[in-house]
């Protein structure tokens, strides 16, 4: 089955979303990503029991930080879906891409463009 999802989504594989820490999401944004989506297993289905639940709390914490620094919490989101839900994955990927497009580019890049600096290539763009 081949499903289309937006080509600008860069996927970083982790063994479990429990591996995703606050700093990873912040660094992705520092490196120019316009948004970060964490896709974990369905709640209650974590192979490591609670990795996805902890990931959700960390995502919430990142959202709190982003609000504090005026970055906007909406750039980061967590979704739960199973490995068998490829269609849903593609749908979510399109959804968050649309949302981030609405929000506009990463504010860091906007600031750099405004000051006429060369735009660093958006690794996770």
């Amino acid at each position: 089955m081949r499903l289309d999802y937006p080509p600008n989504v860069k996927i970083i594989k982790v063994p479990c979303t429990g591996r995703v820490d606050v700093i990873h999401i912040l660094r992705a944004l520092e490196d120019g990503a316009d948004g970060v989506m964490v896709a974990g297993c369905m709640e209650g289905d974590c192979h490591y029991q609670s990795g996805n639940l902890r990931a959700r709390k960390r995502v919430t914490y990142v959202q709190h930080i982003l609000d504090q620094i005026g970055f906007g919490a909406e750039r980061v989101a967590m979704y739960n879906l199973s490995a068998g839900m490829g269609v849903r994955f593609a749908e979510i990927a399109r959804e968050i891409t649309e949302k981030v497009k609405e929000l506009g580019p990463n504010p860091i890049r906007r600031a750099q463009e405004a000051s006429g600096e060369s735009t660093k290539e958006a690794v996770h763009g």
Binding site: I23, I65, F71, A111
Partner: peptide, 15 residues
């Protein structure tokens, strides 16, 4: 790391 990253994000955003 989290604080330093947050500060960089903020100040970079502010140019």
């Amino acid at each position: 790391q989290v604080l330093a990253s947050s500060l960089r994000l903020y100040f970079n955003k502010e140019g």
